[in-house]
Every structure is written in C-alpha cells, then in structure tokens.
Write a protein that binds this DNA or RNA. Sequence first.
DNA 1: CCTAGAACATACGCCTCCGTATGGACAGGC
DNA 2: GCCTGTCCATACGGAGGCGTATGTTCTAGG
Lengths: 187, 187
Amino acid sequence: MSRLNREDWASAALEAIASGGGISAVAVEPLAVRLGATKGSFYWHFASRAELVEAALDLWEQRATVDVIEKIESSGGTGEQRLRALFEHTFQTAALGGADMALLSHTDLTIVREAVDRVTRRRIRYIAKLLHSAGVPSTVARRRAVLAYSAFLGNLQLAHASPELLRRSVGSVSRYADEVMATLLSH
Amino acid sequence: MSRLNREDWASAALEAIASGGGISAVAVEPLAVRLGATKGSFYWHFASRAELVEAALDLWEQRATVDVIEKIESSGGTGEQRLRALFEHTFQTAALGGADMALLSHTDLTIVREAVDRVTRRRIRYIAKLLHSAGVPSTVARRRAVLAYSAFLGNLQLAHASPELLRRSVGSVSRYADEVMATLLSH
DNA sequence: CCTAGAACATACGCCTCCGTATGGACAGGC
DNA sequence: GCCTGTCCATACGGAGGCGTATGTTCTAGG
C-alpha cells in the first residue's frame, strides 16, 4: 500500500461508520490495521480522533447532499420528474445501508447532531424547491417536504429494524413511491 | 442506601440508556458509582454485563408496550377515543426523551434489534386493532398502522435532531394529531 | 549522492471498563 | 449468641483505545 493522505483516513472512517459500527467504529488503531498502517501515520495527518470524526462527517455531508443534488439537477427534466428521480435514488441507496442510519443513531454527540441537522435542512429545502417547481405553493411545499422527509426517516428506521414487517405490509417500492408522490402533489 | 436487587440495577441501566448514553452507557462501574455500590454487588446479581443489558431491555419492553396498552385499555371509551389517548400519551412521553430513541439507535446489536422488533410489532398490532374497532377494515387498518407508526418514528427522529425545524413547519401538536387521526380514519 | 523535511513505525504511559478472586458485613434461624 | 447463606467491598489482572515521544524510512531538491 502506498502512502496515505488525510482523505484516505476520512474515507475509511466514513466507511467504518456506514458498516454498522457507528461513530464508535471510528477508532484509530483498528482503522490503522485496516489500512495497513499504524497510529504514527494517523497522528501525522490528524491532531486527534475528534478531528477524524469531523472529517468523516464533512465527507458524508458532501456525498449525502451536494453530490446527490448536483446529480439530480444535471439530469434535466421537470420538477416532478426530478422529484421522482430523487425518490428513486433515495430508496435505493438508503436501503443498502448508507451511513445515514448510523449517523442518525448518534445525534447524542453534538458534532453529529449538527451535521445531521445541516443535512436535514438542505434535503428538506431541496424537496420543497422541487415541490414548488412542480406547482405546489411554497408554504405548502415546505410543510409537505417536512412530512415527506419525516416519512422517509421512519421508513428507513423500520427497514433497518424490522425489514420483513415492512415487506409484508407495504407493497412494492415503486407503488409506494407513486402513492407518496400523489399525496405530495395533491391539492 | 439499603441493599440492592436485580431490578434496581436493571432500572438504573434503563435510566442510563434513556439519558442519552445509549447502550454504551450501561457500564458496570459507572452504574455502581451512581448507585453508591461497587462491582462486587453487581456481579452477585448478574453473571455479565450482557445479562444486565438484557434485563434493561426486558424492562423497557414491558413499560413501553404492555403497561401503556393496559393503561389505555383500562381507560374505557370507544376505539377512536382510545386511539386519540394513545397519540396523546405517545407524543408526550416520547418528546421528553424516553428510551425509545436511544434504543432505536442501537439496532446494530442483535439483542436490541430483536427487542425493538417485538415492541414495533406489538405497537403496530395494537394501533391496527384500535383502527379496526374504529370502523376501518382490518387489512386497511394494518397498512395504515404501519404508515402511522413510520410517521411517528420519523417525527421522533426529527424532534431529536432538529427540534426547531419541526416547531416552525408543523403547527401545534394537537392539531397535528388531529390531522393524523383524520387521515387514518378516512375512507 | 546527500541532506532536509515529510511520512511513517515502534514503544510507551494512561485511562476506562470487564471480569475474577477473596475476604468481610449483615441478615434470619436455632 | 453463633452460624450459614446472602449480599457486598476491595484488590487485582487483562484488554482495548487515546495520545505522545522518539526513532526510522522515504522522497524531492540541490
């Protein structure tokens, strides 16, 4: 393995978070083993473990909001089509265990709560924007964006803790997405 | 402090979980300090830390489902009135940080996931039962119970990580409960 | 080549927690 | 009042993780 840089460590930390371990999986020595390095390397690039956690959270914030939004935005289409694409993307990536679930689980830590809060606001704001450009009045759009995101979070939680329960009661994912879309766009 | 028994320890452990610490807050030595005792006492009542976690989860399962359901059931009233009472109770206790949020955050641990799964099923089953006795056909009642619970979970999550966001977008709690009730009982 | 600094390895002290071992205190039965 | 079993304190060993100190390799520039 060649030499490592700051982002290699941050990326590995984020990966560790996403792999179910949560924040406590961001431990210097295990990560060092995983990267074929030692603590000596780590403490060259970072001043402390907290700094690594912060870097991993920054990385997550970027990938979970900015990157997704840019991808959707560059795909063209109407507001409604983009909204559909966003749901599609969300259900796919969220289902196969991104870091979202793991981070939502650690909002007792201030730094995590702040990052989650920023991501939440950015996502809701974007959903509201898409709803608005799909014809929903902006004040209503904001309320519904919050509700939609809340439903998404609950669904994510259920999918994680009781997957079979969800499979039996909710039908296919695409049909569910259609239902949600219809509810959000109704007037 | 007089002598302790098994439930004193389990109760203290559950309290530690509810106080934001999560499962990792169930540590023998800190709990011993908090109870004015030592590890010697603990390891008399329990064989291991895992056994304490299990006991705390059992206690939570009892208080978060059976006790609540019994309380609602004994309060009398129609199915609709009981449903309203359940929501009232739920929003109140959940808001001021019960153990729910902390436990939902640790479903990576098998024993927690199983307990959460059982609680989830019991709660959804009860909601469905109330909906049914309020006139909703049983199959529809079950689907809506899942959706209602999912919305509850998402709301809980938002309330925990971004409380002000929620306060601004959703109006008063009672009005929100009315909206949810109306949606669930519509046909 | 050779040197300076960047990148890394090794080894250590410290803390926190788990679990064990063992001795003591406190009750009730006789 | 003493004895047995229950309940608890003290003391220890071990593991894992953080952070530091100090040595060692790699790499670019001259």
